[in-house]
Simulated assay, not measured.
Amino acid sequence: MTRPYRSVLYIPASNARAMEKARTLPADAIIFDLEDAVAPSEKFLARDLLAQALLENYGGRARIVRINGMDTDWGVNDARQFGQIADAVLIPKVNRSADLDRVADLVPEAPLWAMMETAEGMLNAAEIAAHPRLSGMVMGTNDLARELNARFRPDRLPMMAGLGLCLLAARSQGLVIIDGVYTAFKDDDGLRIECEQGRDMGFDGKSLIHPAQLATANEVFGPSGAELELALRQIAAFDEANAQGKGVAVVDGRIVENLHVVTARKTIALAEAIANLAS
């Protein structure tokens, strides 16, 4: 992962003002949405507005365009137009690896991302993640819940099988993977709980529907001061142990092996990437 993805904010591509404002928001990435957030009558206008918006400077924020599906009247032209100027093309409702092939043919260079939001997609997550052009996955938990006929629970128990399958698939291929949205954007406590759950499961960040959610996602998915301090001490202790011919160290009463040092270095690298994004 070459950049942080703590906060990934959806912005309707039909809303020029929102796209302009997004240039100043502390989001690590923006999903410019041509699909669900845009009414059929606004599809062509949204495409034109987005083309103009992407001429502007969004700093270090990743610019991801969610195109319409290939089974619609707009998907093919969406892919052709934005495959050359977006940082990634996000494909909705990916069910199998073959769904990526058609877009890959239209977009020869841009990284592809997959919306994981169907029961079939969950069952084929490993096959999808192994596609040679795929760089990231985004969980579409609302659509998945609808397919499953699942009810909302604060612990997201009905989602755990799908979330876990996609995490395993993404990690097996070294992909970025982003947790689904929390739709109650005024419920800060609920958002924090869900962010903490996603972080602890292993997600890189949270997809968001409102700028008010950015601060919480950035805080939860970013390394804390205590985590950074521990990472530095683990590395120092392990290096000292190695210099003494030992294969392990002890920090705060816990064994530190090479695998812990790898994690510690990732923590420091993430903090550095966040600092670079903010500068």
Rank of each mutant, 00 (worst) to 15 (best):
A215H: 10
R199Y: 12
V220Q: 00
R156C: 07
F221H: 09
Y182I: 05
L165H: 13
D188F: 04
R146V: 14
R156F: 02
L175S: 05
L214P: 08
F221E: 00
R171V: 10
G202Q: 02
S207G: 05
P158T: 03
A170H: 01
L191Y: 00
F152N: 11
Q197T: 15
V220F: 01
G164N: 15
P154N: 11
P158N: 03
I177D: 02
G202D: 07
S224V: 10
M160G: 04
V220Y: 00
A217N: 02
L232K: 14
N149A: 14
L163P: 06
K186V: 13
T216A: 01
A217R: 06
L157N: 13
G174H: 04
S224C: 02
K186R: 15
A226R: 15
A150W: 03
R153D: 12
K186E: 11
M159Y: 11
V176F: 01
R151P: 01
E229W: 06
A212K: 15
L148Y: 10
R156T: 09
D155V: 05
R233C: 04
P223Q: 03
L167P: 08
G202N: 00
A226C: 09
P223G: 03
I193P: 01
V176A: 05
F221S: 08
A236Q: 14
H210V: 05
A237R: 09
E219M: 08
F238P: 10
L208P: 06
N149I: 03
S172G: 10
L232H: 15
G205T: 09
G180M: 04
P211Q: 10
E219V: 11
G190L: 04
P154V: 10
L168Y: 10
L168P: 06
R153N: 08
K206F: 05
P154A: 11
L168D: 04
R199D: 00
D187R: 10
D189H: 13
Q234L: 08
G174D: 07
L214C: 01
Q234W: 01
H210P: 02
C195A: 12
G198Y: 00
P154D: 13
N218Y: 06
D189N: 13
F238R: 09
R156L: 12
A226I: 11
Q234C: 12
M201T: 06
L148V: 09
Q197I: 14
A217L: 06
L163R: 12
I193V: 15
Q213W: 05
E196N: 11
F185N: 05
A169C: 10
P158I: 06
A161I: 15
F152S: 12
E196T: 14
R151F: 11
E147A: 04
T183V: 15
L165S: 12
A184S: 14
D200T: 15
D188G: 13
